[in-house]
Design a protein around this nucleic acid. Structure first.
Length: 471
DNA sequence: AAAAAAC
């Protein structure tokens, strides 16, 4: 812990930032730096490495973007030659949306300078990115995979990068980006400033920091894993069936706009959005199986206030910054308690008040208890009175029971609903072959071993052959 | 267990 928090500058003008950058800050309407900005800006400006733990929505992006631009100003020139604009600062993010958003910020803060910024990420045509990069950029924002693609195609050279930012580093590790990160870092000069931001300081993160940071200044603004005080939290216990009705009721009865509803699965996300639309709620879904164009379209519509609800997987749990999201609903409780913190961090941002509502089925209560343990506070349980009309339609439309395979005994007494049940996907006919006991008398079968359900197709061969380790 | 990310 550092104890410099209280004594930070009380105005952006106190940082000594280059006037052209300060001008953009003023134009954006910022006056008082947030705690992370107050702490990080002087340290980054001084050239030191930083290991920062900050709640999302605390102004983290500006906290590293502003001093980076400031430090690049002596290198800025108005030349039209791409050769005069090599990449000097590289910002890596785990998701495409976050990269895009950080790029928007960098472009805004550099609008009055000759500095140029570009962004590259996957899922979209690489051609325009090549063109943008070819024109030259001092600041490059990227997701790791597409960046390596560019490097291999020699459209991007990282040999002049003097500043590296790893944003949402814990998420990048979770997503298996470590090998990509290592490859990218090997392409950078040894002599550089490195900033690592992470929601948590896990052992893996500390190890990463030991490998790539030099005597970093540790900055931590909020107690780790704490939730913002400005977010009120409540949890409603509901059967799985009633959840959808609850979302409709909450949105309609209170006239909510711009609600993010989190679901655990891509399929569940898409299905819920469709059902909400049928119930007269303007809703779109965003998840990783959608094309990048659709993801952007949904996000834009949401930002523009055209949607009442954005139904999202955890693709949207971290980093997304939509001004003024008043309410986040956890339609499913996340398997990892930490994801709860990230999800509800979408509301109550930058000091605004927000509300986080959790809808949990009885069998999900243990996840709620995990969350309470992590955030070290109790989430009050509420009672939600749903109109009968909503509940009825919720039942009628149900094509198959949700979680009917749950191990709970009381499911039996509602057996009538099982008649609606149809498997979502065709089941491999292996499961329907008669069971043959493996007696000695049995003729030797030379049949290939059954292929497990298709999800295993991506597993290493060794696992398929039974040689893989299972832990 | 699920999600994300290069083609």
């Amino acid at each position: 812990m550092t104890d410099t928090a209280a004594s930070g500058p009380s105005s952006f003008a106190d940082f000594g930032l280059h006037p052209d950058i300060l001008k953009a800050v003023v134009a954006t309407g910022y006056t008082i730096p947030t705690p992370i900005q107050a702490q990080a800006i002087p340290v980054v400006t001084s050239g030191r490495d930083v290991m920062g733990a900050a709640q999302t929505g605390t102004g983290k992006t500006a906290a590293f973007t502003l001093p980076i631009l400031h430090r690049l100003m002596p290198l800025a020139n108005n030349s039209a030659s791409p050769a005069r604009h090599p990449v000097r600062a590289l910002i890596l993010t785990p998701t495409r949306e976050l990269a895009d958003q950080v790029a928007d910020n960098v472009k805004r803060y550099s609008q009055f300078t000759p500095l140029r910024a570009a962004v590259v990420f996957g899922g979209v045509d690489i051609g325009p990115q090549k063109e943008e990069v070819r024109r030259g950029c001092e600041v490059l924002i990227a997701t790791p995979g597409r960046l390596l693609d560019h490097v291999e195609q020699k459209t991007i050279n990282l040999g002049q990068v003097g500043m590296l930012v790893l944003d949402e580093a814990d998420r990048m590790l979770d997503m298996g980006f470590l090998p990509d990160l290592e490859r990218i870092i090997r392409l950078l000069p040894q002599q550089r400033q490195t900033l690592l931001f992470s929601a948590t300081f896990s052992n893996e993160i500390r190890k990463l920091a030991r490998s790539y940071l030099t005597q970093p200044v540790e900055i931590e603004v909020a107690a780790r894993n704490a939730t913002a005080d400005t977010v009120s939290q409540i949890a409603y216990k509901l059967s799985g069936d009633a959840k959808r009705a609850a979302v409709v009721h909450l949105v309609k009865s209170r006239g909510l706009k711009q609600v993010i509803v989190f679901s655990n699965t891509k399929i569940g996300t898409a299905r819920l959005a469709r059902q909400l639309e049928r119930d007269g709620v303007r809703a779109e879904s965003i998840h990783g199986d959608k094309t990048q164009a659709d993801r952007m379209k949904a996000l834009e519509a949401f930002k523009a206030g055209e949607l009442e609800v954005l139904v999202a997987t955890d693709v949207a749990a971290r980093g997304l910054d939509v001004a003024g999201v008043p309410c986040v609903i956890n339609y499913d409780l996340p398997y990892n308690a930490e994801d709860y913190v990230h999800r509800i961090g979408r509301t109550g941002r930058a000091g605004a008040t927000g509300e986080a509502i959790a809808l949990f089925a009885p069998e999900e209560e243990r996840f709620l208890l995990d969350v309470e343990k992590l955030i070290k506070r109790e989430i009050p349980r509420g009672q939600l009175d749903l109109p009968a009309s909503l509940l009825a339609s919720s039942r009628g439309e149900r094509e198959r029971p949700v979680r009917s395979h749950g191990a709970r005994g009381e499911r039996g007494e509602r057996g009538e609903r099982h008649r609606y049940e149809l498997p979502a996907k065709p089941v491999d006919d292996f499961f329907f072959r008669p069971y043959v006991p493996a007696t000695g008398a049995e003729p030797a079968r030379t049949e290939a071993p059954p292929v497990p359900p298709r999800t295993s197709a991506k597993r290493p061969l060794a696992v398929l052959l039974g040689g893989g380790k299972k832990d």
